[in-house]
Amino acid sequence: MESGAVDTTASRSRASVAIRAENVWKVYGSGEAEVTALRGVDLELARGEFTAIMGPSGSGKSTLMHCLAGLDVVTRGEIVLGRTTVTGLRDKGLTRLRRDHIGFIFQQFNLVPTLTAEENIRLPMTIAGRKPEPAWMAEVIATVGLRERLRHRPHQLSGGQQQRVACARALVPRPEVIFADEPTGNLDSRAGAEVLRLLRKSARELGQTIVMVTHDPVAAAYADRVVFLADGSIVTELREPSAEAVLDTMKLLDAVEG
């Protein structure tokens, strides 16, 4: 039913749009305690692209991601993910949307401790009652480099390995979009770099759309596109940026805000 929306955006610069946000507002609380986290955000993310959302603390970047992923309800505006209008869905629809069309990677890895690495990777498919294609599964496992560790439980894996399991878990169901929330926040720089290379590779070689929220310019530099958020609005963006360019933009934003 939302096919019309997809068609209109398809006529724009990109061949295909994975997710589109239109005039999205998010207001918490009311009266004195009212806080506006998002003020009319318009955003389109292309299919197969690795996008980083950056911004200072309190800029609304996490809120934006939660709204895009259907974890949080927007106050006003519309979000369309693939062919589905996210805004207006109830719990059941949101659950199905997350299960079938969205992948998540968190800062805290968030693996289920009772399951092995492989079982964790298969979990979203198991929940949905589907079976992953063996060839695809093998390819994903090869990409994340975990073939030797499939039978280990989370506590037997290093932080980087756990985060790669989380990446594989997000990749296997071939979601419309993977949302990664500070995926390197809990990792040292080497393990972090490995995970970021993996994400870029997933986008370039496997065609996976990825949205990453980060405050780290180095991490953002791995993305194809960096969107800068300040005070709940998108202020600027960079394409194929270097870490220096990201850092400069951030400094500029901090200065403006300060």
């Binding site: 299960r99 998540f104 968030n110 949905a128």
Partner: peptide, 16 residues
Amino acid sequence: TRELGLLRVIGLSRGQ
């Protein structure tokens, strides 16, 4: 709580 939240995020329904 956190683990349950994660499971809900990756698609475990209320019934499940």
